[in-house]
Amino acid sequence: MSDLLEGFLGTSVEGKKSRVPAKLDYFQSATGLFLGLFMWGHMFFVSTILISKDFMYTITKMFEGSFLFKEPQSWIVSAMVFFVFVIFIVHAMLGMRKLPINFRQYQAYKTHAGMMKHDDTTMWLTQAFTGFAMFFLGSAHLLMMMVQADTIGPYGSSMRMYGDVMWPFYLLLLLAVEFHGGIGLYRLCVKWGWFEGPDAKVSRKKLKQVKWLITGFFLALGLLTLAAYVKIGYEYSNGLVDKYKPTAQIEVTYDVKVRA
């Protein structure tokens, strides 16, 4: 009954404001922080291909529990992706509250950002656009990884990029993730007063410089990684190299000629 009255009135029957907006704000930040930091780790893992196919394979199998089970279990990765997907959906749901919801809001903000030429105001538009794009790009990627976790590896991942022509999709996803995540983590610091120091203006300037450095680094790493997968996929597709087999599993045979 109190839910009915609170829903109708917008305040509790005692006339008190709901604590839900506080929780929504907190969880929007918490899920964003998790996803932002997760993406840093994720980028390091996928970029292991730049070192070697074997290293990327080893890392992949590590996530499949190679250190616990005799045979790698890809369901572990599926379960991890599912967990990230849930956080992703919660974050999208909470972030959606901030987006412009009608033409006038969009028009007013866009005009304002154009007039002000104020970094943080313009960056929010980037964050909104990339966030919206990731509703689709991020969901598609996470779903793919969840149901095809067993294909992750030097061969499967590179064939996905080149053979399945998914590289344009991943290029867009990379740009969206790096811009959205980088701006989002920076904004979290501003929003909650992290690393504020004695002069918030000075520390914000430094934070923004660090933010761009990190975004630049991960964009470069991401582009190189994407290019590496495309190159390897091209080589597999055109029969330039044999299908990947971990070096540790290659049988080495010697033809020993016995001299009579």
Binding site: H118, T121, W124, R187, V190, K191, W192, A200, R204
Partner: peptide, 28 residues
């Protein structure tokens, strides 16, 4: 909880008030 931390308030305040940190303070 509606503040999106765009901080144009702080960057344009003619009295240079510490708006960014005070909003963060109230939010926390």
């Amino acid at each position: 909880f509606g503040c999106m931390s765009l901080v144009a308030c702080e960057d344009n305040c003619p009295k240079h008030l510490p708006l960014q940190s005070k909003i963060a303070y109230m939010r926390r």
